[in-house]
Amino acid sequence: MTHLRPVNQKAARIAHEAAEARRRAAQADGRVVALQDGPAAPPKAEGPHIPMGCSFVFYPGWEVDANGGTAGLCQPVERDLFDCHLGCFWPAQVPDQLNHAPDWTSKCAAAQKDWRKVDLIFP
């Protein structure tokens, strides 16, 4: 701090906390948390916000959970997203097979082998 100078002990603690918060914010800025980073440090209250689980937030980078692993995801990442249309109670990330794209998975007998045949659908 240059424009405020902590005088008492409480002010010194606040200044320290504010500096820490700025440092953490600078670190988290633009940072992608991914598997190759290894296990993340235990989450801190003010750390970058990483949602638990897979599906509702569909951005690259969410293939890991808040601890840097896959255990917290609602289904194994290897089956995501294709399995959304079979196993998930909330298949919002896949085409609407009832009304709009009934043949979406017709060429895909086994996802492990045929996943490349599941194509993009543009509504």
Binding site: L4, K10, A11
Partner: peptide, 18 residues
Amino acid sequence: HFLYLVPSAAVFALDDTS
């Protein structure tokens, strides 16, 4: 100039800008 913050009870000294 000083600032006594409530409720944290921190005391900060201010420079001209602050």
